[in-house]
């Protein structure tokens, strides 16, 4: 009945949605933010820890949400590891473009490989009401980077 939805729900997404990676509280985190999508009740806490050179040493999250938002957060925590805050933000901007349009022509070639890991989520661009599910984690990341104290991010 739903075979044509396999584009949106690719195996990677179902897998990360069911078994999100880095789904834990990060005890040595210096940065934290909470993301909230009031429309559907999705909530997530994101924690970041940094290396001495300023790059992200570890990212982890906890929360509840749909398969898309869980998978997006899971993939994000994997891909931002080792990135500088500026690189992570550039990836977030690229990802939002990807989620809204299905393409990311402006994505920095230097990040191409990482962006490729996120492309299974590009299918959401055909589902306007679901774009926010995919971008919530990245909004939350921005907030954690800008305001380590843990302000509430909203997907609104």
């Amino acid at each position: 009945m739903f075979d044509d939805l396999r584009d949106l729900y690719q195996e990677v997404i179902l897998d990360h949605g069911r078994k999100p990676r880095n789904f834990r509280r990060l005890e040595n985190a210096t940065h934290h933010a909470r993301g909230d999508n009031p429309l559907c009740g999705d909530k997530m806490d994101l924690w970041l820890a940094f290396n001495e050179d300023g790059s992200i040493a570890d990212a982890a999250f906890q929360g509840r949400g749909c398969a898309i938002s869980m998978a997006s957060a899971s993939l994000m925590t994997e891909t931002v590891r080792g990135k500088t805050p500026a690189q992570a933000k550039a990836m977030g901007a690229g990802f939002r473009e990807l989620a809204m349009t299905g393409h990311c022509p402006a994505c920095d070639a230097a990040l191409e490989e990482d962006m490729e890991r996120l492309t299974p989520l590009s299918g959401v661009h055909e589902f306007p009401s679901r774009v926010k599910c995919a971008t919530l984690a990245w909004h939350t990341l921005n907030n954690a980077l800008d305001d380590p104290g843990g302000k509430e991010a909203s997907s609104e």
Binding site: M1, F2, D4, L5, L8, Y9, L39, C40, G41, D42, G65, C66, A67, I68, F127, R130, C133
Partner: peptide, 22 residues
């Protein structure tokens, strides 16, 4: 095994309009 938002996206594909959320 399905979040309400994922489920409503599927049902929408089947032509079924339901509300999802709270």
């Amino acid at each position: 095994n399905a979040h309400s938002h994922d489920l409503s996206t599927l049902l929408d594909r089947a032509g079924i309009a339901v509300r999802a959320g709270r």
